[in-house]
């Protein structure tokens, strides 16, 4: 009962975050909505684990938190440098003008 209430209280904000992602208007609003949606998904997975009595759901939640963070950073990096294959910080500095994504 307790966790059912928590799940309901998470799904409504998730739909609201989805709405912000659809409305936009900028790319950054959408990424923010996606990140926020992901954080709530982590909580929802954990809550579902409690409802079903399956503690192994927490491992999935932990992994989802990891992927959510890396995904956000990867999207931002891609839209900034148009390239994900930049190896070290010197390349990033050279690529900061955004001309060729730091490819040497």
């Amino acid at each position: 009962m307790m966790f059912a209430a928590a799940a309901a209280g998470l799904i409504i904000p998730m739909l609201m975050a989805l709405a912000r992602g659809l409305i936009g208007p900028t790319l950054y609003d959408r990424v923010l909505a996606g990140n926020s949606f992901g954080t709530k998904t982590v909580l929802l997975i954990a809550v579902l684990g409690f409802i079903g009595g399956r503690p192994d759901f927490l491992d999935i939640a932990l992994l989802y938190a990891l992927m959510n963070f890396i995904g956000t950073i990867a999207i931002l990096k891609f839209f900034r440098y148009r390239n994900l294959g930049v190896a070290d910080s010197a390349d990033i500095r050279n690529g900061a003008d955004g001309k060729n994504g730091g490819a040497v």
Binding site: G9, M16, Y28, L32
Partner: peptide
């Protein structure tokens, strides 16, 4: 704790919908 948590999650998301621009929405998130 669950009621308080759900309240703050809802408030933050509501702010993400209501506030006028990207930077202010960051605060709500």
């Amino acid at each position: 704790f669950i009621l308080a948590g759900v309240f703050f999650i809802f408030t933050g998301t509501l702010g993400m919908l209501r506030l006028p621009d990207f930077y202010t929405r960051l605060h709500a998130a």
